[in-house]
Simulated scan of single mutants.
Amino acid sequence: MSVTIDITGLPHERIVFCPSPLAELGAALHALSEPAHHPGLHAWATTTAAALEPELADRLHEADFMWRSTRSDILLPARPRETLAEELDDLDRMDDERYVGSALEISCASHYTYGAPSPLVDTRMRRRALDLAAARGPRQAAFVERMLADPTGTRAWVRRLLEDCDEAFFSDTWRRVRIQLAADARHKTELLRRKGLADAVVAASPAMSLEEDEHGSRIVVDKLVQGRTTTAQGSGLTFLPTAFGRPHLIALYAPGWQPVVQYPVSGRELAGTAPVETVKLRLEAVAHPMRMRMCRNLARASYTTSELADAYGITAPEVSRHLAVLRRAGLLTTRRRGRYVLHQLDVAVVARLGSDFLESVLR
């Protein structure tokens, strides 16, 4: 599974690495809402949350569905600006239908990424947004009702909320991190110019790659989600570095939007993470009851096929089939001793499976 961004024919000058204050504010708000996702930011999140005025904290809680489980597309600008005010001005110029559809992306998640109409203009989507919001609690239900009834007023409310966050804590945070983010963006831009897009993409995150063949060029983002988008004529592709992102790798791929990828600047820490498909293979391999029982032996010592067949009362071909599944998943080490082939569980790989799984679902 992956998000594929078709960039066939896209000139490299339309591929931009650049920090965005609005995107970084969205990432910071997510870290405040879900501190368990970001243990490395525990001190910052604790200190910042404790210093918030109760009234501001209450408003953040009211609107946190726009950044809590994932980031609304309005928080990922395709054309980053120098200041938050400039990016909020750009946001103000967006039409109501697009703004509301994106702001309520979580409530409309199952259809939004397929180009479903905005709940402002489609009765069925409006009912769906209200129903799903109600399932998330009375505060979100009230917020969604207000946004659908008065999009202009609600948009102004959201802007004031983000401006108040900037005044309360983000402006200081942005001054500290923007230098690091700008340096990272310059480094990736230089890699793109000197070594090519493939090197720049992998440097941004090892969970991304460039694929090129006779059908064209694509950037593949290894995620536990299936999505596809393309760079429309005259548009481009934007990469936004973030100091608050890890372990998340956000890809905007909704129809009608320029593709945007937000990647954590600490990408080197992800180098040991297994691809999503490998994690899936490993989980399926150890989930089978017989293979789980065999792992008990294989974790303790090396065993031959015949020894395992004798221990579990099954045939040698059956054991071989189970061992083949474990081997394809990269969970076994095999060595030969004379005419015997000995198999043993790779305990180090199995020990990483939990963290690899968590990294995959949070990415």
Results as ranks from 00 to 15, higher is better:
Val286Leu: 05
Gln180Phe: 10
Asp164Cys: 05
Leu224Gln: 11
Ala182Glu: 15
Arg159Gly: 09
Gly245Trp: 00
Ala285Asp: 03
Met147Gly: 08
Asp213Tyr: 02
Gln258Glu: 15
Leu161Asp: 03
Phe169Leu: 05
His187Cys: 09
Asp184Ser: 14
Thr152Phe: 09
Ala185Met: 06
Gly234Lys: 10
Val201Asp: 11
Arg146Val: 07
Leu162Met: 05
Val265Lys: 01
Ser171Leu: 07
Trp157Lys: 10
Leu210Met: 04
Tyr263Leu: 03
Lys223Gly: 07
Ser217Met: 10
Ala198Phe: 04
Leu210Phe: 06
Leu283Tyr: 02
Leu197Arg: 09
Lys280Cys: 13
Val201Ser: 06
Gly272Lys: 12
Ala203Met: 08
Ser217Tyr: 05
Leu224Ser: 11
Gly153Ala: 08
Arg193Gln: 13
Ser266Cys: 12
Phe169Val: 06
Gly153His: 06
Leu281Trp: 07
Leu191Phe: 08
Ala204Met: 13
His288Tyr: 10
Leu281Asp: 15
Val220Asn: 07
Met208Asp: 07
Arg268Ile: 11
Arg268Tyr: 13
Leu197Cys: 08
Pro241Thr: 03
Ala204Asp: 05
Gly267Phe: 06
Leu283Lys: 03
Ala243Glu: 07
Glu212Thr: 12
His187Asn: 11
Arg218Glu: 06
Thr229Asp: 01
Arg282Ile: 01
Arg160Glu: 15
Pro241Asn: 04
Gly272Glu: 13
Leu249Gly: 00
Pro255Tyr: 04
Met147Trp: 10
Thr152Asn: 09
Pro259Thr: 03
Pro247Phe: 00
Ala285Lys: 00
Thr278Pro: 09
Glu269Asn: 12
Ala251Gly: 12
Ala183Arg: 14
Asp222Trp: 02
Arg146His: 14
Phe244His: 11
Ala287Cys: 06
Gly245Cys: 00
Lys188Thr: 08
Gly245Arg: 00
Gly153Cys: 08
Val177Trp: 14
Arg178Pro: 03
His288Ala: 15
Ala232Cys: 08
Gly227Arg: 03
Pro247Val: 01
Arg282Val: 02
Ala285Gly: 04
His215Trp: 09
Leu270Ile: 07
Ala183Met: 08
Val201Thr: 08
Ala185Lys: 02
Arg218Val: 02
Glu277Val: 14
Thr242Asp: 10
Gln258Thr: 14
Pro206Trp: 02
Gln258Ser: 13
Arg246Gln: 13
Arg246Trp: 14
Glu284Gly: 11
Ala254Pro: 06
Glu277Asn: 13
Gln262Glu: 11
Val202Thr: 13
Arg146Ser: 14
Thr189His: 01
Gly267Asn: 07
Glu269Cys: 10
Ala183Ile: 06
Glu190Gln: 12
Gly267Ser: 15
Gly227Leu: 02
Ala251Met: 13
Arg155Asn: 05
Gly234Met: 11
Leu181Glu: 07
Tyr253Asp: 14
Glu269Trp: 12
Asp222Pro: 01
Leu162Glu: 04
Asp213Gly: 08
Asp184Gly: 09
Leu237Glu: 05
Val261Pro: 00
Pro151Tyr: 01
His248Glu: 14
Thr229Trp: 01
Val225Asn: 09
Pro241Met: 12
Ala198Trp: 05
Asp150Lys: 07
Lys223Asn: 11
Arg159Ala: 05
His248Gly: 06
Val286Arg: 00
His288Phe: 05
Arg178Tyr: 03
Val202His: 10
Gly245Val: 01
